[in-house]
Simulated scan of single mutants.
Amino acid sequence: MKKLLSTLILVLGLCPAAFSQTKGSTEFGVTLGYNGSTVTTTNTNADYRSGFNAGIGGEYYFSDSWGFKAKVLYDQKGWANGYIGSTITNFNLDYLTVPLLANWHFGHTKNWYLNFGPYVSFLTSAKTAVNSQDVKSIFNDNDAGLDLGIGVKFPVSGTAHFFIEVSGQGGVIDIAKSNSGSTISNSVSAINIGLNF
């Protein structure tokens, strides 16, 4: 997995950048946003945890309407006022997330877009709010699921676009290692801003 992630970062960094949405061009960007995360389960309380995400991405255009987008994000997930066992606390789970998305551009100027596809996440830390207790050992190292988003781009120069994007992630993997009850899966809603060039 680490080799796959390293290769993806290298490819995103070495591909030649072009500055128009034409067939065969590549666009890069940086993004920063707010995460509202929780978990879907019937066996524990699951309020929303506020966090953030930040990362880089690249999109290769097959046409003026379709592209393939990949991102690498530092992604704060988890949930608030929950429990595993008898302790009620906030669970702060931090991931490195890699979404691999089909990107459909629409509208008269093709500045609106809808993206969808799978993601995979790699757990970097897991702590409780109570005494900042390290609980990484009780969670699986990986998470995966589906990512869906919609956004709009605004030209700020001949080669750069500011964007606003709303997205969501729905996990399909049980994130707890030893779970005798129902499955615990990540669920995230995010709003992001960024710059493509």
Rank of each mutant, 00 (worst) to 15 (best):
A176D: 14
T89W: 04
G181I: 08
V152Y: 15
V98L: 08
I175V: 13
Y113P: 03
L101I: 02
F139R: 11
Y119P: 02
N90H: 12
P99R: 07
D134R: 03
G117E: 09
N142V: 13
Q169W: 09
A144E: 11
A176V: 15
S86F: 05
S86Y: 10
D94F: 00
N111A: 08
D174G: 05
D134L: 03
L114K: 06
L96C: 04
D174H: 08
Y119F: 13
V135H: 03
N90Q: 12
T109E: 12
F139D: 14
G145R: 09
Q133H: 09
P155N: 07
T128L: 05
S132I: 06
T97N: 13
L114I: 11
Q169L: 09
N140W: 01
N140A: 03
L100Q: 09
A144V: 04
F122T: 11
D94M: 01
G168T: 10
L148P: 07
S137C: 00
H161S: 09
K136H: 10
L96I: 15
V166W: 14
A144M: 11
W104N: 03
N111V: 04
F122W: 06
H105G: 00
N142D: 14
L148Y: 12
I138R: 14
D143V: 00
S137M: 02
V130S: 15
N92W: 01
F162P: 10
A160W: 12
P99F: 05
L93C: 04
W112V: 01
N92C: 00
K177D: 13
K110L: 06
T109Q: 10
G168M: 05
A129Y: 08
F116K: 01
N90E: 11
V120I: 13
D141Y: 12
G171R: 04
Y95G: 02
K136F: 09
G181T: 15
S86N: 14
L100S: 03
N115T: 02
K127Y: 08
F116T: 04
K136E: 14
V98G: 00
L101V: 04
G170L: 14
G107I: 07
